[in-house]
Design a protein around this nucleic acid. Structure first.
Lengths: 224, 224
DNA sequence: CCGCTGTGTCGCAGGTGTGTCGCAGCGTCC
DNA sequence: GGACGCTGCGACACACCTGCGACACAGCGG
């Protein structure tokens, strides 16, 4: 179904929710502190974060804000009844929904599905970077209003890179995400696709504005 | 009366309109940014959206377009006298009406009632795209006034696609939504149905205007 | 200045994805 | 009971993408 990062310090609750969510078909990664959660976030790239409000160290709100500063992944906050949980503060921190503990797994799963439904459509939004407009729902790309016809692979590559502007993707990572493990050999495959993409997307492919080379590492989606 | 989502960044105006609309019997939800408004839209499912043109972050036009990409809810735009508000751009973005600020509550309420009347009229459930008219209540389709006889499957396919114009549906998604059960093998089922639909709906099935192929991904209901 | 590693560029042949056609099963309506 | 139309399926053709190798070239260090 989806990969979920569960940040919860109480080992019992954590274990219980983990098993329950697994039964509902999700892949679950866990963390027991905010710091650990943020590390996992970068490592696992989950589709959704379930986040306890009361955490040792940095609290849930702060974790939520930091998550938001890195990625658009949806966040559901867990709050114990009786916590002085401020819904407004939670939503302002960037949470998408919240669930009161003790959370019944079916309820939590329902919320998760609801949030994912909402946020995989609106993640299906429009990304605008300078002259480039990427519509992730219509799967169209246009530059200065002119539609840019891309092939499926080129489009997947652009979508992958532009999902996290500024981040460097290694060729291996791109092979895995764009080509989905179908190819193991290291030919100039990624480079070739990047070139073809640049020809269509860049004003001057020799001085790329959007798909930049990071020598020795890979490629990065341009204007940060 | 109706649930209204008010998107307005100026706290004073927002509060004032909120109270005024409440006095006129509407339930009012508010948001102070476009992003927040879009969240509220999904959460509250309002009957109508009142939307300020000048917003921090994504502006009113873009918010309006995104609202439209998600739902058919009517939108009234608020524009300050002196804004370089382009009525055409507003209407093209999908707005149903606009009101010049400072808006007198009675005026705004009258517009709201008018728009709601229109959108709950017999025109309800009718989607018009260029020459194509799809009546989702009567389940009839006509092109240039000529009725187009569709088979049940073709109709479901067209309804599914046209519910979210512009969005790309994968074959798998279409199988699940239109055929309502999973297919394991990949037959040309969806393609065939699309072809049959095109023959009836398109002027030139070879250059489809409404049901477009997105190579490598699926199909999309055209004209965006 | 030279060699080496890493990246840009080009063309081609095979492969993949989609359009098209025909057919048979089956339900429905006379 | 017969005819008709809808539906699912497979075969085939074709356009276009895709993967690949070969070579050129630039950046970097010795």
């Amino acid at each position: 179904m989806a990969t979920i990062l569960l940040i919860e310090d109480d080992a019992l609750v954590r274990r219980g929710l983990q098993l329950a969510l697994r039964r509902h078909g999700h892949a679950v990664r866990t963390a027991d502190t905010g710091e650990d959660g943020l590390r996992e976030l970068r490592a696992a790239e989950p589709d959704l974060v379930v986040l306890d409000v009361m955490l040792p160290g940095i609290d849930g709100f702060e974790v939520c804000r930091r998550v938001r500063s890195v990625t658009q992944v949806p966040v559901i906050m867990l709050t114990a009844r009786g916590d002085d949980f401020d819904v407004v503060e939670g939503l302002e921190a960037g949470a998408d929904d919240y669930v009161v503990k003790p959370a019944r797994p079916t309820v939590l799963d329902a919320r998760i599905r609801a949030v994912l439904r909402r946020s995989t459509d609106p993640t299906e939004g429009v990304r605008v970077h300078r002259d480039l407009r990427i519509d992730t729902a219509a799967l169209t790309v246009s530059r200065r209003g002119e539609p840019v016809p891309l092939t499926p692979t080129e489009l997947r590559l652009l979508l992958t890179l532009s999902r996290t502007p500024g981040r460097v993707f290694s060729r291996q990572q791109l092979l895995e995400e764009v080509w989905e493990h179908r190819y193991l050999g290291d030919s100039r495959l990624v480079d070739n696709c990047v070139q073809r993409l640049r020809v269509k997307v860049e004003a001057d492919p020799a001085a790329p504005e959007y798909v930049q080379t990071v020598r020795g590492f890979g490629y990065r989606f341009g204007p940060v």
